[in-house]
Amino acid sequence: MKELPHTLTAKKEMLVRLKEDFLQKNQRYEQVKSKVKELREQLAEAEQKRAELEARMEFLQTQREFEAQDKEIRMAAEKEQQIRRDLQREESRMEEIKQELERERLLIEEQEKEISKEEEAIQSSLQEKMKVLEELKREEEKIGPLLDPDMVFKFSRIIQSKEGVGIVPVIKDVCQGCFMLLPREFVNRIRRGEEIIFCPHCSRILFFQEVPEEVPQVEEEEEESFGELSDLVDEDELFEDDLIDDEDSIDFLGEEEEEGETIAPSTLLKHKEAPEEEIEEDLDEEDLDHPLEEEDIDIEDEVDELEEEEEEEEIDEDIDEYDED
């Protein structure tokens, strides 16, 4: 009930400030308005004086009188122009203040309407709360004689000192009235509910309130994320890639067997994983890594030379025998 008029009070204070500003601007408007009136009168006098001086020009006879009269006319005209400029400035200022006053007047009217509506709503709400309060008082009168007088007195003192909040829950071992942590044994006594227990810090009556524990959903989210990643890869594409790699390795082995060359198992693995350019480089390196083949070629050449020498010796012996015969 005490909290209901707070917003209404703030709006009323704002309305008072708006009215004060409106009054101050209205005073300025009246001052400017009176000055505009005064300037208009001065302008009319200046125009009349200039017209009279111009009318006298017809009756002048000497040059000196004519020059003096012309000077007075110029001075009257300058004064008239100055008054006209001042009048225009004050009129524009008066118009601005008038527009501001109109805006503030509309704002004040809207604020007054809102305040009247809120007052009506507060009055209706207040009447309903008064009815509920009367019903609670009647129930209190019925139950009061059955309660311990000391407990009722203590509870009424707590309500008065704690702004009407005398009973609060205990959530996760914390009093929700003063937000102080309570001992575990003390909380277990409150949980059992066998007696009326007061908070040792704020003196409010306590009751235990269960808080449902939130089930973590991290594992499910991780499984869903893994599932989404696996959906991005097609199993058929993976199977086709494996088949292509196997076919390339088989074709390479077939070509090497036709040429009569032996390939080490490590080389086979390299050719299966490496691209075609790296395969050619590996084969060139293997040819360089077998110097025994060059030695075998040199030995065969020496054997051929020895056989040729033996044949030449046999031919020479036959020729010598023939000469002797």
Rank of each mutant, 00 (worst) to 15 (best):
V152Q: 11
D173K: 15
L181D: 11
F155P: 00
G144V: 03
V174L: 15
V187F: 04
R157Y: 03
L182N: 06
N188K: 14
F179H: 14
I143Y: 06
R184A: 08
I171V: 13
F179L: 12
F155G: 07
I143L: 07
K162W: 01
R184I: 02
K172N: 15
S161T: 13
G164M: 11
C175Y: 01
P169T: 01
F153H: 10
K142W: 04
K154F: 03
I171L: 15
V170P: 13
I167P: 09
V174Y: 14
V165S: 12
F179C: 10
R157V: 00
L146T: 10
M151S: 07
E163C: 11
F186P: 00
N188M: 14
K162C: 14
G144D: 04
V170H: 09
E141R: 07
I167R: 14
P183E: 13
V174W: 04
M180G: 05
V152Y: 00
P183H: 09
L146I: 01
V165N: 08
C175T: 06
R184H: 11
N188Q: 11
M151G: 04
C175D: 08
C175W: 01
L147T: 05
E185L: 10
C175S: 13
S156A: 12
F153Q: 13
I159L: 12
R184Y: 02
P145Q: 01
V152K: 05
M151L: 15
R184W: 02
L146H: 01
S156Q: 11
C175N: 09
I159Q: 15
R189S: 05
K162I: 03
S156L: 13
F179P: 04
L147Q: 04
V152T: 08
I171E: 15
K172H: 10
Q160W: 01
G164K: 12
G166C: 05
P145F: 04
Q160P: 01
K142E: 12
S161K: 13
L181S: 11
V165Q: 07
S156T: 12
G164H: 14
L147G: 02
P183K: 14
I158Q: 10
K142F: 08
I158E: 14
I167N: 08
S156V: 09
V165R: 15
K154S: 05
P183M: 02
D148N: 13
I171D: 11
G166D: 09
L181C: 07
Q160L: 09
D148Q: 03
I143R: 00
E163H: 14
S156K: 11
Q160M: 08
I171R: 15
P169W: 03
V152P: 01
D150F: 00
I190Q: 14
L146G: 02
L182Q: 03
S161M: 11
C175A: 08
G144E: 08
C175F: 01
L181N: 08
V152F: 03
Q176R: 11
P183F: 00
P149Q: 13
V168G: 07
K154C: 00
G166L: 06
G177M: 05
Q160I: 02
